[in-house]
Structures are given as structure tokens and as C-alpha cells.
Measured scan of single mutants.
Amino acid sequence: NKFNKEMRNAYWEILHLPNLNEEQKNAFIQSLYDDPSQSANLLAEAKKLNDAQA
């Protein structure tokens, strides 16, 4: 299933973003579980936030 793979990839990438705190990571990961079809968008948002907090 495409979403499972996308979701897993997004999950791991978000988990390893160095500039997000636990609360931010948890919020993105919760959103992933709530709507796996948004994995790519959530990952993009997480990366933007990560870069902004660098």
C-alpha cells in the first residue's frame, strides 16, 4: 500500500529532523496517523519548520 510506505518514510524522516523538539515531532507524527494521505505534505511542512529553526 502506497500510503503505508509514504507514511513510514515520512515518519522516519520527521523523527530524525535535528531542529524539531519532541512536541513538534509528536504533532507531525500524530497528523501522519490521522491522515496518511497527507504524508508528503506533512513531511514538507516538517522540513520547512526544521529549516526555519536551524
Rank of each mutant, 00 (worst) to 15 (best):
W12M: 02
N41E: 05
E22N: 13
A27W: 08
L42R: 11
S39D: 01
A10K: 01
Y11W: 12
D51T: 14
L42S: 06
F28I: 05
Q30D: 09
E22G: 13
E22H: 14
A46G: 08
I29G: 15
E22Y: 15
L43F: 03
Y11K: 03
L17M: 07
P18G: 13
M7G: 01
Q24L: 10
Q24I: 03
D35Y: 05
A27I: 10
K2E: 15
L32S: 01
A46D: 00
E23K: 12
E6V: 05
Q24A: 10
E6A: 11
D34M: 11
L32F: 03
A52W: 13
F3N: 15
S39T: 05
N41F: 04
K47H: 10
A46P: 00
N1R: 02
N26P: 03
F3A: 15
L42W: 14
S31R: 12
Q30K: 14
R8K: 15
Q24P: 02
M7E: 14
E13H: 14
N19W: 10
E6W: 01
N50I: 03
Y11T: 02
K2G: 15
L42T: 05
L32Q: 03
Q24N: 06
K2A: 07
L17T: 04
N41W: 14
K47E: 02
K2F: 11
L20K: 00
E23M: 10
L32A: 01
N21T: 10
I29L: 08
Q30Y: 13
K2P: 07
Q53I: 08
A10L: 02
S39F: 15
K47D: 02
Q30L: 06
L32P: 00
L15H: 08
E23Y: 11
Q30I: 06
F3G: 15
S37T: 08
L43I: 02
S31L: 13
A52D: 08
K2D: 15
L20N: 00
Y11P: 00
F28D: 00
E6R: 02
Q38N: 08
S31F: 12
F3L: 15
M7P: 00
A10T: 11
S39A: 11
N50K: 04
A40I: 13
K25F: 13
P18H: 06
K5D: 13
A54W: 04
L15W: 04
L43R: 11
K25S: 05
W12L: 02
K5Y: 01
